[in-house]
Nucleic acid binder design. Structure first.
Length: 513
RNA sequence: GGCGCUAUCGUCUAGGGGUUAGGACGGAAGAUUCUCAAUCUUCAAACCCGGGUUCGAUUCCCGGUAGCGCUACCA
């Protein structure tokens, strides 16, 4: 595979785009054998560095009579086009300059007359084979003689790709089907140059939910967008493969990147356009999050296979930070989910809950438990801070005032449960020390249960409210240790222990009455 | 306007001259859990229209319609 930078449009190309592009592709899991960053036998790999070659080949076509000089101005052409369209005809170039004597044309050019170079389209239909569309034929009547070299001396995209693809020995041209109508021009170019035509595969357009071509307006469209949202690369790769392709049988949906390499086939790609479905992407993303951080995570990801360099690419961490993190947490040895953890960490820092400076070994291990507990509940990693707010944020007053909790507050046993539970926690020595064990917690709950006679929702909703401020949330068994451990850590945003929470709740409740 | 591409549940798709037209996302219902989520089970949901070919078309052919693309000295 070759990475080639196509930057012939000076206005739209900037050096920093190239760095971003390379970073994005690597994150996505793409790798190349040749490119501007790694070199290769057909150097250079940036079109702006290959201009000389394009001009030489254009001159050659000119000398061979396969191309000609065109002295028409842009205004002339525009007028011609408008007129042709108004008369209901083809909006193609009239061929006015086709008939100018080549020697005469060269004299005019030498005299400084601005001119472009146009390819002469042959007088026969243009046929080519496309892997997804089959045999395609265009009448030569409808393809205009294309400009290959602008009067400014800059070559045109449709021309340079042909030169580069041929020179770089590209075997398969795989691209969007918006290029299908451009392909006859390119095929004519290959023929004029006397070069073999590569295989084409024109993939269908991806549409937004309004059936319009996917654009910025639809939200995430670039790889960087998805990464920032906390979509895992394997989810995106898997989803994109499913857009227009299905395996024989059509029932399997989950494919690792390695499996796709083996099983994906262009021959089975559908030519019809597909609407991008975020929900399904999220479903896959949840799947891969769970796979990396679920019960089976250890089986799936071999920690030894992730190098520091790969990890840096995948997470956007500086390489030194990657090493520090691995060392600190002994994460290499203990958790195969480093990458997910570091990815998640990024979103916690953005939310102001954590900072790299404040991370020590205990904190990483603690964060691992937090993510393990909550990651299976999110569509994307950037939702993690919000999901985790019940750990980092606690506001008893807001909880008492929340409309969501009004129903719970109206239950007959609620007050008694509050009173009993608060009293017991405040008295408990282990809770005071921030070391309330889940077993002890259960005991207390059972005592409250016995005293009030409440059970089920009636019992747990009020208790949940006291501890998290909300009547729903994760398992107490797992949540309690996280709160207690978290309360001992030096974090930018302090985590309140169970005792601290109960204290605050009691206060808020007291001041209200 | 011209030319091209496309057409199966809301969405992604499998299939193919005779099928209960299959799967997945999403939706609905139920089970489970202290709750939410997750999970499991069940349900609803589709062959664009019109002609032709054929004993029989959703499938093959033609036409229409719609969507998209190209029609640049953009990529």
């Amino acid at each position: 595979m070759v990475l080639r930078i196509e930057d012939t449009d000076v206005e739209r190309s900037e050096a920093r785009f190239e760095d971003q592009l390379i970073a994005d592709l690597k994150w996505f899991g793409l790798d190349w054998d040749e490119g501007p960053d790694v070199g290769g036998p057909y150097f250079p790999y940036r079109q702006s560095d290959r201009l000389k070659s394009y001009r030489e080949h254009a001159e050659r076509l000119l000398d061979e009579g396969k191309a000609y000089l065109c002295f028409c101005t842009e205004e002339d052409l525009q007028k011609e086009r408008d007129q042709a369209m108004a008369e209901g005809g083809q909006a193609i170039y009239s061929g006015k300059c086709r008939v100018i004597d080549p020697a005469e044309a060269k004299r005019r050019r030498a005299a400084g007359d601005p001119c472009a170079i146009r390819l002469r389209i042959p007088e026969h239909p243009i046929r080519f084979h496309d892997i997804v569309h089959g045999d395609v034929e265009f009448s030569n009547e409808v393809v205009s003689d294309p400009i290959i070299l602008r009067s400014s001396g800059m070559p045109v995209y449709n021309y340079v790709v042909v030169i580069d693809d041929a020179l770089m020995k590209i075997t398969h041209v795989i691209r969007g089907d918006d290029h299908l109508s451009n392909t006859p021009k390119q095929v004519a170019l290959y023929e004029a140059l006397g070069w073999p035509v590569p295989e084409f595969a024109h993939l269908s357009t991806i549409l937004g939910s309004d059936r319009e071509r996917l654009s910025k307006r639809h939200g995430a469209t670039s790889i960087a967008n998805f990464r920032e949202m906390g979509v895992l690369p394997e989810a995106l790769v898997n989803y994109l493969a499913l857009l227009g392709w299905a395996p024989t049988g059509g029932t399997r949906e989950i494919f690792s990147t390695e499996e796709l390499v083996k099983e994906f086939s262009l021959k089975r790609v559908t030519p019809s356009p597909a609407v991008f479905d975020m929900e399904k992407l999220y479903w896959l993303n949840r799947h891969y999050i769970k796979e990396r951080f679920g019960v089976d995570a250890d089986r799936v990801l071999d920690p030894g296979t992730v190098s520091d360099e790969d990890l840096a690419v995948a997470t956007g961490f500086a390489i030194d930070d990657v090493r520090r993190v691995r060392l600190l947490a002994e994460i290499t040895a203990q958790s195969p989910a480093v990458q997910l953890l570091m990815l998640a960490f990024h979103h916690f820092t953005k939310a102001g809950y954590l900072s790299l400076e404040a991370m020590d070994r205990m904190t990483w291990l603690w964060l691992g438990n937090v993510v393990r507990l909550l990651a299976p509940y999110v569509d994307r990693l950037d939702q993690l801070p919000e999901r985790t707010s019940l750990i980092f944020k606690y506001d008893a007053k807001a909880a008492l005032a929340a409309p969501d909790n009004a129903e719970v507050l109206s239950w007959p046993n609620t007050d008694a449960i509050f009173a009993g539970f608060i009293f017991k926690i405040l008295e408990d020595e282990s809770a005071k020390a921030g070391n309330l064990a889940p077993e002890r917690f259960k005991q207390i709950v059972n005592e409250v249960k016995a005293e009030t006679g409440a059970k089920g929702k009636e019992l747990f909703h009020p208790i949940r409210m006291v501890i998290t401020g909300s009547h729903s949330g994760p398992d107490f068994d797992k949540l309690i240790p996280i709160l207690e451990e978290g309360s001992h850590l030096q974090l930018p945003k302090r985590v309140l222990s169970v005792h601290g929470r109960v204290e605050q709740f009691a206060q808020a409740r007291g001041s209200k009455n």
